[in-house]
Amino acid sequence: MIQTISVEESRQLDDKTINQIGIPSMVLMERAGLKIYDDMRNNSDLDLNKVLILAGTGNNGGDGLVVARLLCTHGYDVSILTVGNPDHASEDHVSQQKICDYYQIPKTFMNADFNKYTTLVDALFGSGLSRNVGGDFATVIDKANASTAKIHAIDIPSGLNGDTGEVMGTAIKADSTSTIAYVKAGMVKPTAQPYVGKLFIDDIGIYKGNTFDNE
């Protein structure tokens, strides 16, 4: 049986790994990006011919930016759509955006035609979403769901409650999801199943004990 954790447990494990064990958050973000990139390449359901990263301004978006860079440096056609206020971006997100700028990864905007992409990467929200999705985020989620592109979600499909699996106003309907470290409890709820799709569990060095055990 797959081991699950709550949103609060996820937050505590992140804090323990970064601040007590001493693995820098950027290292964890790099590991996550590499795992997600590999998941996508090894998923025959995805067509990576033309990819759009939907990035929020937090660390989930930062993970998406790492994926964008890996796709770019391995010859894939990838663009980035950043959603949210850049003035409120996390420190790691800002650092990853600078790296993407170095590689001159194209940016696009809200009015982009999502149907011209073969795969969308959902990096809008992590598992800690606590209120209903609105504004530009809701617009982008609904537009993504209505598009012909496949969707790969990072950690949890944006808009799903990590504990209950309920839709917070609207949510990404992913074809596949790379969850980080452990599956969040809400993702195995019946209400969440149509949104999660094929599930990958990525070991990036965040453990409940001193070893990785997801069974």
Rank of each mutant, 00 (worst) to 15 (best):
K150E: 05
A192L: 05
K116P: 04
Q97N: 05
I105H: 05
D101A: 14
L124Q: 08
S95Y: 11
A171I: 03
T139R: 15
K189N: 07
S127C: 09
H152M: 09
T82A: 09
V83Y: 01
N111S: 09
I180G: 06
E91K: 10
E91M: 06
D136A: 15
Q97R: 06
K184H: 07
A153W: 03
H74E: 15
V183L: 15
V133H: 01
A174W: 06
V83F: 02
P106A: 12
T191G: 02
A123P: 05
N85K: 11
L70S: 03
S127A: 09
S95K: 15
D92C: 08
K116I: 11
T191R: 10
T179I: 13
T108F: 10
D155L: 04
F114W: 04
T108P: 04
D202A: 15
T179C: 13
S90H: 00
V140W: 02
T177Y: 08
I80D: 00
A123L: 02
K184T: 07
A171R: 00
V78E: 09
L81G: 06
M168L: 14
P106S: 12
T119P: 02
V121L: 04
L120A: 14
F109W: 03
D155F: 00
F137E: 13
T73S: 14
Y117W: 14
Q193T: 10
G64N: 10
S176T: 12
V133G: 05
K150Y: 03
T177Q: 14
N115C: 12
H74N: 15
T177K: 05
P106I: 07
I201Y: 03
G162R: 00
H152K: 03
H88G: 02
D163P: 00
L120V: 14
N111T: 11
D175N: 15
Y76T: 13
G135P: 08
I141M: 06
H74A: 05
A192D: 05
M168P: 01
V67T: 11
M168R: 06
G128P: 00
N161S: 08
G84D: 08
D142A: 10
M187H: 05
V167L: 03
D155K: 03
V83I: 08
G135F: 12
G162L: 00
T73K: 12
D142S: 14
L120N: 12
V196Y: 12
T108R: 09
Y103N: 13
A89L: 05
G75E: 15
V140H: 11
T82F: 01
S90I: 00
H152S: 11
G135V: 09
N115E: 12
V78D: 13
D92P: 00
L124G: 07
I154A: 03
T170M: 06
T139L: 14
I180E: 00
V94S: 04
Y195K: 07
T82L: 05
S90Q: 02
A123M: 06
V121G: 01
I156N: 02
A171W: 01
D202F: 04
K107G: 02
M110R: 11
L124D: 08
V67S: 04
A181Q: 14
S130F: 04
I201A: 13
D155P: 03
